[in-house]
């Protein structure tokens, strides 16, 4: 199936810091748009301005990278899908972190962006390895849940449902949801507030 996400082989970026919220990933003023196109340019806009060219997303050796290694509670805050959209459009194809905010990882899943997790020691080791060798490709095996590159190979985890959906190509659920017409109808008929509270 074309949508199956099994292996990603790309350079990686280590982005350190806990609780990086969606306002930082894409500040609210960039939500004034009626399409997601062009959002890639504004990923981490304010952090990048504050760091005057030193943010990883601005560094030459990170251009074209596809894996983002983050710390704890990444993507907390607003439900804006603009956040994963901007990362995806910048070029990120998967995230590896200690933990992700739930709405954020759900939004990533809907876009086919794996969010893999592991413990903080492993993340630190991976971030050190990536920082030491930013030119190297890392091999993210989504199926086996490992990441391998210079410096080692590390095991990862992912909630079972997300793992199954990504590797089987069933992460884009719209078609599945709309297909179940009869089941949707029968659910509606047993909801008291849709039937004058008679059922």
């Amino acid at each position: 199936m074309a949508n199956q996400i099994r292996r990603i082989e790309r350079r990686a970026i280590a982005l350190e810091g806990n609780d990086i919220d969606t306002d930082r990933i894409i500040p609210a003023r960039f939500l004034k748009c009626v399409t997601f196109e062009g959002l890639g340019a504004w990923a981490f806009a304010d952090d990048r301005t504050a760091l005057a060219g030193c943010h990883p997303f601005d560094q030459d050796h990170h251009q074209g990278a596809g894996l983002l290694v983050v710390n704890r509670n990444f993507g907390c805050g607003s439900s804006r899908e603009h956040a994963p959209q901007s990362l995806g459009r910048w070029g990120i194809q998967a995230l590896i972190g200690e933990s992700f905010a739930e709405i954020f990882s759900g939004n990533c899943l809907a876009l086919g962006l794996p969010c893999c997790t592991t413990d903080s020691e492993t993340i630190s080791a991976l971030q050190r390895a990536v920082a030491a060798n930013p030119a190297a490709d890392y091999h993210l095996d989504v199926e086996a849940l490992t990441i391998t590159g210079p410096g080692g190979s590390w095991p990862l985890t992912m909630p079972a449902a997300a793992h199954r959906m990504l590797t089987s190509g069933q992460w884009d659920v719209t078609g599945q949801l709309t297909a179940r017409d009869a089941a949707l109808r029968s659910t509606a008929t047993r909801l008291p507030y849709l039937t004058g509270f008679t059922c």
């Binding site: 719209t174 949801l177 949707l184």
Partner: peptide, 18 residues
């Protein structure tokens, strides 16, 4: 639940969420 835009599309299309 708060949801993202792809899920807004899903609810519009199917009145349901995964």
């Amino acid at each position: 639940f708060g949801i993202g835009t792809s899920q807004v599309r899903d609810v519009l299309a199917s009145q349901s969420l995964a």
